[in-house]
C-alpha cells in the first residue's frame, strides 16, 4: 500500500481519494476550504452506498472513509509517498501552491499533477523535484472510469513514472501514455468541442438539450458535450479553454462568452445544481 496525499477535495479530489481508499491505500485529503472537505466525505459516503446500484462492487462506506484523513493544512502531507494535486484549474493558484507543497512534503515523494490542460513541465518547474513529477489526467467520475492519460514532463525520471504506473495499476486504471502538451490529447479536442457547442447555444442555433440529442442519437455518444460540461464543471471548462487560449496564443481557442456568464453566475453544472441543465434535488451541494 502507498501512503497517498490528495490536494484539492473538489469533484476530482473526492473521486481520486475514494478510488485510492477503496483499493486499500491510506489517504490524506487536503483542501483549503473546510466545506469542501465536508462535502467530499458526504460524496464519498454516498458514492460507496450507491456503488452496487450503479453496477459497481459492494463498498463499505465506513471502511473506505476510515482510510481517509482530512486536513486544511499541507503539513499533514509531510510523510506521504505520492501526492496527487487536484486544485482549481488556475495557473495562479497552482503557482502559489506548488512551492509550498514542495516544502511541506518529504523530498523523495513523487508529485502527480491532475490538470485538464496545464503542461506538466511548466507545473514541475514550480518545484525542486522535476524528476519526481508526473502528469496524470484522471477522467470524471474517477471511480467509474477505467483509464487515464499519463504524461511525463521534460525531466520526469523512469523511476517516478514506474511508481505512478504501479499506483494506477493497483487502483485498476489503465494508463495511456501521451507526450506533454497543453490539453494533452483528450482536452485539446474535448474542450474545443464543448466550447463550440456552447457557441451554438449562445447563438441560438439550438438549445442545450437539442445539441446533446444530436451527439447522442446521431453519433451514438453516451453523453452530449453540454451534459459533459455540466459533469466536468462549467467553470473548469472555461478555465481549461483559457489555458489553451493563453498557451497557444491562437484565436481558435477563444472562450465562448456564455461560458463566462455562466461561470460568473455560479451556474457551474452538477456541482452547484445548475449549468446547462438544472439538477434539483440531485447531487448538488447544499449551499446556494
Amino acid at each position: 500500500m502507498t501512503h497517498v496525499g490528495v490536494v484539492g477535495a473538489g469533484v476530482m479530489g473526492a473521486g481520486v481519494a475514494q478510488n485510492l481508499a477503496r483499493h486499500g491505500h491510506p489517504v490524506v485529503l487536503v483542501d483549503s476550504d473546510p466545506h469542501a472537505l465536508t462535502r467530499a466525505r458526504e460524496t464519498i459516503d454516498r458514492d460507496c452506498r450507491m456503488s452496487r446500484f450503479l453496477g459497481g462492487p459492494d463498498l463499505d462506506a465506513e471502511e473506505v472513509l476510515g482510510r481517509i484523513t482530512t486536513s486544511e493544512d499541507l503539513a499533514a502531507l509531510a510523510d506521504t509517498e505520492v501526492v496527487i494535486e487536484n486544485i482549481t484549474e488556475s495557473w495562479d493558484l497552482k503557482k502559489d501552491l506548488y512551492p509550498r507543497l514542495d516544502a511541506a512534503v518529504r523530498a523523495d515523494a513523487v508529485f502527480v499533477a491532475n490538470t485538464s490542460a496545464i503542461p506538466i513541465t511548466r507545473l514541475a518547474s514550480l518545484t525542486r523535484r522535476p524528476r519526481r513529477f508526473v502528469g496524470v489526467h484522471f477522467m470524471n467520475p474517477v471511480p467509474m472510469k477505467p483509464a487515464v492519460e499519463i504524461i511525463p514532463g521534460e525531466h520526469t525520471s523512469a523511476e517516478a513514472l514506474a511508481t505512478v504506473r504501479a499506483l494506477l495499476d493497483s487502483i485498476g486504471k489503465k494508463a495511456i501514455p501521451v507526450n506533454d502538451a497543453c490539453g494533452f490529447v483528450s482536452n485539446r479536442v474535448l474542450m474545443l468541442t464543448v466550447n463550440e457547442a456552447a457557441f451554438l447555444v449562445h447563438e441560438g442555433v439550438a438549445d442545450a438539450a437539442t445539441v446533446d440529442e444530436v451527439f447522442r442519437s446521431c453519433f451514438g455518444h453516451p453523453m452530449g458535450p453540454l451534459e459533459t460540461a455540466d459533469l466536468i464543471g462549467v467553470d473548469t471548462i472555461l478555465h481549461s479553454v483559457e489555458v489553451l487560449h493563453d498557451h497557444f496564443a491562437d484565436s481558435k481557442y477563444r472562450p465562448c462568452p456564455l461560458l463566462k456568464r455562466m461561470t460568473d453566475a455560479g451556474h457551474h453544472g452538477r456541482k452547484t445544481g445548475r449549468g446547462f441543465y438544472t439538477y434539483d434535488g440531485a447531487a448538488a451541494p447544499a449551499n446556494p
Binding site: M50, F53, M144, L231, D280, G281, A282, A283
Partner: peptide, 18 residues
C-alpha cells in the same frame, strides 16, 4: 436508452432529498 448511471444516481438523490 437514456438512463446512464449518473441519472440513475440523480433519481435516487431526488427520491431521498425531495
Amino acid at each position: 436508452g437514456f438512463v446512464n448511471s449518473l441519472f440513475a444516481m440523480e433519481l435516487v438523490m431526488f427520491v431521498e432529498q425531495r
